[in-house]
Design a protein around this nucleic acid. Sequence first.
DNA 1: ACACTTATTGACAATGATTTTCATTATCAA
DNA 2: TTGATAATGAAAATCATTGTCAATAAGTGT
Lengths: 140, 140
Amino acid sequence: MSAKLWLTQLQENGYRLTKARSAVVEIVQKSLRALTPVEVYDMARKKYRALGLVTVYRTLEKLEELHLIQRVHQPMGCQAFISAGEGHQHLLLCQNCGQVAFFEGDDLDILTKSIAKKTGYKIQEHWLQLFGLCANCRVN
Amino acid sequence: MSAKLWLTQLQENGYRLTKARSAVVEIVQKSLRALTPVEVYDMARKKYRALGLVTVYRTLEKLEELHLIQRVHQPMGCQAFISAGEGHQHLLLCQNCGQVAFFEGDDLDILTKSIAKKTGYKIQEHWLQLFGLCANCRVN
DNA sequence: ACACTTATTGACAATGATTTTCATTATCAA
DNA sequence: TTGATAATGAAAATCATTGTCAATAAGTGT
């Protein structure tokens, strides 16, 4: 029922509740893999035919702004989105089926401190992403 | 003089040595920050006016193929390239001036192994990137 | 130095992704 | 219910990238 929570979030931030938004939210929220705007469009239109692609872009923009989704960077492209994890999480992507798993992993402090010392940089953020095969794809 | 090495690399891989390629290589090779194709185009055209943007794209493609440059992913966009580090290196980007530093950091084995166990994934690759302020920008 | 083969080029067009514009519609507060 | 206005979808505009093609230039053999 987390889709309802997302809609509530939108509402609480002054955005209106519409059929278009509901359709987009429903698709993106429950997806286990990152979806491109066009993919969201195609899938959501099965629920709400009148939906326009432009609205998908605009809705994704708002969801990202509210940190409900995040952009996923991959070698093949960076225009896909996945529902964001709670707090500070990293992604683990299946190179075969695209399924996304989240993990926490801030054992990076030691590393970042040593890098900071070596380079003179003040480190403020980090991106860590793992790629591999999920339990299913591993077998086949 | 590493620009000459890049040109040699191109030649050794069966590509011809041209003015257009020299101009592109000269700019990209010595840049301390990641450059977009258009930025490369603008800068390289100061050396070789006849240069076309399409050729910039094609040259970058070849340089990436030879692992002389690599694509840099950033929140604001993923279409910039920087001269690649030796072997397996990670990037550290200054959020103010864009300067890029490289570092090695494969102390990630412990982390990846624990994630693999928890998630059931077979982990094959990782992306790690740090963001911060370089020594210069830190002060100002 | 020359001619010849063919990779490379730049201009233009085509594509694909994203953004802007705008008149119409639908949400939500009063 | 009504009215202000946020949100919508369609079409056009913009921006990044790729494909096409005739003209050019690199590098080979002479």
